[in-house]
Amino acid sequence: MSNSGNTSKGKIVLGVIGYDCHSVGNKILEVFFNEKGFQVTNLGVMVSQDEFIDAAIETAADAILVSSLYGHGLIDCQGFRDRCVERGIDDIILYVGGNLVVGKTPFSEVEEKFKQMGFDRVFPPDVDLEDVARLLEQDIHARRTGKH
């Protein structure tokens, strides 16, 4: 778990949701977002919805970035936004990315499903992280200036 940078672009909570223990990508994300100037709280693998939310409350995070690589992302992420609302962080930015579902469902359908569940952005496994960082910075800026 690490934080860095005082002139941060925003505070984010990272982790791999559910019973997923793919840890390599998670480490890469941590290093990447730290270098990009975000203040990262990395919860590692096998993180529950409540653990993401607990950490987001204590750190007053701007965004939660959820990874899922083992194909059960849809079930694990069910009700995530509702839970955020219940626990008082209604307006937190929610991203999700990885191998979100098993099989050959077109990405647009997957994206649609997760957006319906309240995720702000959904990313396929081959996304360019530079793009994600740029979008994240924009979204955080918008949230802080009340345009989210």
């Binding site: 934080n3 709280t41 204590e58 750190t59 007053a60």
Partner: peptide
């Protein structure tokens, strides 16, 4: 107590 350093302020 409450909040990490640089974390929650509001509550």
């Amino acid at each position: 107590t409450g909040g990490t350093d640089g974390g929650n302020e509001e509550t």
